[in-house]
């Protein structure tokens, strides 16, 4: 029951973020669904006993992959869906407690929170990058050798 409430709240919060970023009206409700999925995956993976960082990465990948698929269908830039989609995963609370610890002079605790914040932000980036890598298959640019012509 608790998770249902959380998912509903995530849905409305993500739609609200869509309005803040002015994403097109036809993408607004879909963006909410992607944010909801990201939170659902995050909680689900967390329930398996993994770390927060890993769960964030998987959830970010799921949200980004779904954004790529839907963006192709409704012909919209991917960012318009993936930006609100990954927002529920932003480690806002860790970032806040990092700052709070530094203000209170508890530097060790602050560093601990800070490292976790950075790792979670990195996990979001990693999820985005993996989805991008998969969905840009066939558009390679060649980084090391010229292809044989």
């Amino acid at each position: 029951m608790d998770i249902v409430t959380q998912l509903l709240i995530t849905y409305f919060a993500t739609v609200a973020f869509g309005i803040i970023f002015s994403i097109p009206k036809r993408a607004l409700l879909i963006g909410g669904a992607i944010g909801m999925l990201a939170w659902g995956v995050f909680q689900g993976v967390l329930n398996l006993g993994t770390s927060y960082v890993f769960a964030t990465g998987i959830a970010s990948f799921a949200a980004a992959a779904l954004s790529h698929i839907t963006a192709k269908i409704i012909r919209i830039p991917v960012t318009a869906l993936s930006i609100p989609g990954i927002l529920p995963l932003v480690p806002g609370s860790r970032a806040y407690f990092t700052m709070l610890s530094f203000v209170e002079g508890d530097y060790l605790q602050g560093l601990e929170y800070g490292v976790e914040t950075m790792l979670r932000a990195g996990a979001i980036a990693a999820g985005l990058v993996f989805a991008l890598a998969i969905f840009s298959y066939g558009k390679g640019i060649g980084h090391r050798y010229e292809p044989n012509r």
Partner: peptide
């Protein structure tokens, strides 16, 4: 696309939602 007052309200909704989620 959305009027400014709606954006302010949306910020409020997002803030309220995330305070619950956190």
């Amino acid at each position: 696309t959305y009027p400014l007052w709606l954006i302010h309200i949306a910020s409020g909704v997002a803030g309220a939602g995330f305070s619950y989620l956190f």
